[in-house]
């Protein structure tokens, strides 16, 4: 399909462009916004895989909830402190090293993923079947998730109490 290839090419171009912008922007809020846009674009990638539910969850949970958490953390620092950290960042171009690493990894996996021949595959994404399999057979994952999710709720209180005690000393 030419259209699909073209659209995916444009999408990947945007993602990589935003990826670079994350390193080029000096203001932390703009860096945050590029990450937000990347998260939304990842949702569109999932749409191309016919996994609409995962796409919606990607936007709702990652772009909507996790990044809000990041944003509130950014707001905890006043502007002057952020300016100070910006000056530090200017001298360290070693932050481009992980970028190069991930880019190399990306290109490697991209070239490795090119199939020898294109033939129709028979799997597809149906939420009803997925839900049935997940909850009937792999129900143990739900308890792992429950454990993981109740961890921050308890850790939150302990963290804040410790902070306050050290603050009073």
């Amino acid at each position: 399909m030419v259209e699909r290839g073209l659209l995916l090419f444009v999408l990947t171009f945007f993602v990589l462009f935003l990826f670079f912008l994350t390193f080029i922007f000096r203001q932390i809020l703009y860096q945050f916004l590029t990450i937000l846009l990347i998260m939304v674009l990842l949702g569109i990638y999932y749409l191309f895989l016919n996994a609409e539910f995962i796409a919606a969850i990607q936007v709702i949970v990652y772009a909507g909830a996790i990044l809000i958490m990041f944003l509130f953390t950014i707001f905890l620092f006043p502007e002057e402190e952020l300016k100070y950290s910006r000056d530090i960042l200017k001298t360290h171009y070693s932050s481009f090293l992980p970028l190069g690493f991930f880019l190399a990894l990306f290109l490697f996996s991209l070239f490795k993923a090119i199939p020898k021949s294109y033939k129709e595959q028979n799997f597809y994404f149906d939420l009803k079947i997925l839900s049935k399999i997940l909850f009937n057979d792999y129900w143990i994952t739900i308890y792992i998730l429950a454990f993981l999710l109740s961890l921050p709720m308890i850790a939150l209180y302990i963290f804040f109490k410790r902070e306050e005690r050290s603050g009073s000393n």
């Binding site: 939304v40 949702g43 539910f53 919606a56 936007v59 709702i60 772009a63 909507g64 809000i68």
Partner: peptide, 11 residues
């Protein structure tokens, strides 16, 4: 879900 996703982006 589209409505909920757009609501969470509108924030």
């Amino acid at each position: 879900l589209v409505v909920l996703a757009l609501a969470s982006l509108g924030v």
